[in-house]
Design a protein around this nucleic acid. Structure first.
Lengths: 105, 105
DNA sequence: TCTATCGTTCGATGATTATAGAACAATAAA
DNA sequence: TTTATTGTTCTATAATCATCGAACGATAGA
């Protein structure tokens, strides 16, 4: 089982984070992860195929937005809130607050 | 001279704003506009062709991030700071603050 | 060991994008 | 009126992306 790549906190790029969060599906994933805490891929209800979920998970992980750990056959996803807060203070909070202003929920 | 489309403040979409700001060139444009205030396209020093600047300007404008007005043969660009602040409080500020943390400047 | 579950990876597709150069439009200046 | 300036639009290109289904890999359970 190969270890999944996660960028170091210091290497998280603003452009990559903004890009990762600019997709409505990924933004919804992040929103739900913050609401509900760590979740398995399959437990996040999304209107897309599982291979697409996997793709989005990867994008978020490689941008440094989420962390993925293995537990049995499951992949547990969680928000890297502290890391993001230390790298870009206030950013995630304001984006998620903005998301709640939206009708995209 | 056809009028340029600008979305109403209420119609500005979070995903579109994040996408517009996820490109390094566009992010730099926005950063410089906030630093220097209203500027003509050509006065923003960028390492790309003018047709590409025009394309990026359009992306930012249609996302609701900047406003474009005509003055002679020039197009003057400015940040829609108040509009963005009222639609997504704190968002632009935290993104630009994050940008300053970066080595992309 | 065999099977079911969970998720990734592969291959393909249609769409979008960032980029540039050339041609064009509009305005200002000579 | 002719020319110069400013920026847009058109066309093209190479790259990336979101999506899906099928095949695969790893683990848990029977």
């Amino acid at each position: 089982m190969k270890p999944l790549f996660h960028p170091d906190t210091a290497d998280i790029q603003l452009s990559s984070v903004l890009y990762a969060l600019s997709d409505p599906v990924r933004l919804m994933m992040v929103y739900k992860l913050r609401q509900n805490g760590e979740r398995a891929c399959g437990d996040i209800e999304l209107p897309i195929a599982k291979s697409t979920v996997s793709h989005h998970s990867r994008t978020l992980r490689e941008a440094g937005v989420i962390r993925t750990r293995t537990h049995g056959t499951q992949r547990l996803l969680s928000l890297r809130e502290e890391d993001l807060e230390s790298r870009f203070p206030g950013l995630l909070k304001s984006i998620l607050a903005s998301y709640e202003e939206t009708d995209e929920l």
